[in-house]
């Protein structure tokens, strides 16, 4: 396959960025999208140009490091996958592909296609945990948990923290991310104990960090590589409101 690539280049966080056009040739349809970028970068180095910086690590869809906005879609034009799992067979020979970094005020661009997602860490530091120390915990089977609840908790826990939700949301809202963590722990008896505190603390942190508000468009769910449902946002809202009532 031969492809034209329109890629966002930006020297650093403060510099003004812009698009540049590139060409790659003879790419196998079985190549992954990031491997295609590897090929491009290799060519660029040989041509004496600066290779394109993009975040990536596990390349099997679980670490959440890759983050490209491809042809208008977070993680590209396929459902339920991350960019690293996108393969070139999803494109046609001769296509022009537009590649942009995540765009959200809370995710500033660091360089080219890499953005700073430390805001997500900060939200989790605000309360995305169960306050237990190592050791001194009861036997794992001491608290039975219904399969349904455990499964729902796992559905939410599948979040990889990639940022596609906030990057897709027209409001730059991180609600799906926050909801995934709150909901996952809220479905478990261990997590319920400090559920109210968690919901309030995480939402407050999210607001403080400048993420937008949820207007229930559902775009996050549509673009989430792990298919996390906005039902978890409803649960977060429930948790949050009942926590506020308790005050």
């Amino acid at each position: 396959m031969n492809l034209k690539l329109k890629i966002w280049r930006q020297k650093n966080a403060k510099a003004k960025g812009g698009f540049e056009m590139y060409h790659v040739e003879n790419v196998s349809p079985d190549t992954s999208f990031l491997e295609m970028l590897d090929i491009l970068n290799n060519n660029l180095i040989h041509e004496g140009k600066e290779p394109i910086v993009f975040d990536h690590d596990c390349r099997e869809g679980i670490c959440g490091m890759c983050s490209l906005h491809i042809n208008g879609h977070a993680h590209g034009p396929d459902t339920d996958i991350t960019t690293c799992q996108l393969h070139m067979r999803k494109f046609k020979d001769g296509d022009t592909i537009v590649i942009e970094p995540w765009r959200s005020a809370a995710f500033p661009v660091i360089k080219d296609l890499a953005v700073d997602r430390s805001a997500y860490d900060k939200i989790l530091q605000a309360g995305g945990f169960i306050s237990v120390n190592t050791g001194g915990v009861p036997d794992a089977n001491a608290i039975p948990i219904s399969k349904k609840d455990a499964d729902e908790s796992m559905d939410a826990a599948a979040c990889i923290g990639c940022g596609a939700c906030a990057a897709t949301c027209k409001n730059g809202s991180a609600m799906l991310f926050v909801a995934a963590r709150v909901s996952s722990l809220a479905k478990l008896p261990q997590g319920r104990i400090e559920g109210a505190r968690r919901a309030k603390a995480m939402v407050a942190k999210m607001d403080e960090l400048g993420f937008g508000n949820c207007t229930n468009t559902g775009a996050c769910e549509a673009e989430c590589p792990k298919g996390i449902s906005i039902a978890h946002i409803a649960r977060l809202n429930r948790e949050f409101l009942s926590a506020k009532f308790e005050d």
């Binding site: 050791g135 794992a140 261990q190």
Partner: peptide, 22 residues
Amino acid sequence: NAIIDQCVAQGVPFAREYGGLL
């Protein structure tokens, strides 16, 4: 064994049987 206890206490959603046990 202590690892499994610890992880459950932290809220790791391990797979469960219908009876609620791991």
